[in-house]
Design a protein around this nucleic acid. Structure first.
Length: 115
DNA sequence: GGCATGACACTGA
DNA sequence: ATCAGTGCCATGC
């Protein structure tokens, strides 16, 4: 057993990411990097993507509200990407044909925790 | 420990 | 605005 990264800590880290993700309201999007930072892990954008990829297909978490820093759906072309586009549009988010979203309008800005 | 991979981010052309 | 190159971190072999 390796004590450099105990499984329960990894699980806890993912849990924090889930909590942060659950806090994104419908009609908004957030970048992988912002989401990770919101969960308390800066510079962990790629890790966030890995976690989302591991999510069970029947999750209720709003994984579709996560896009890259350019405001673009980061999934490879395919049914998954189209599903994300559809889910976002169903929430009123405008997604261009090139799978792009106007962050100026839809980026979620987390409330300051009591400053 | 070294090397390759990935639902990313940033900069320069 | 879009593409290519480079950097960052975590994972798996």
């Amino acid at each position: 057993m390796s004590d450099t990264s105990p499984n329960h800590l990894q699980t806890d880290a993912r849990q924090r990411l889930y909590t942060a993700l659950a806090g994104i309201p419908a009609g908004y999007v957030i970048s992988y990097g912002q989401l990770a930072a919101l969960a308390g892990f800066t510079r962990r954008a790629r890790w966030a993507g890995q976690v989302l990829k591991h999510l069970p297909a029947d999750t209720r978490l709003p994984w579709h509200r996560v896009v890259n820093a350019q405001g673009k759906i980061s999934l490879p072309p395919g049914p998954a990407a189209e599903r994300q586009k559809a889910l976002l549009e169903a929430e009123g988010v405008m997604v261009s044909d090139s799978l792009r979203i106007n962050l100026r309008q839809y980026a979620w800005i987390p409330p300051l925790s009591d400053g």
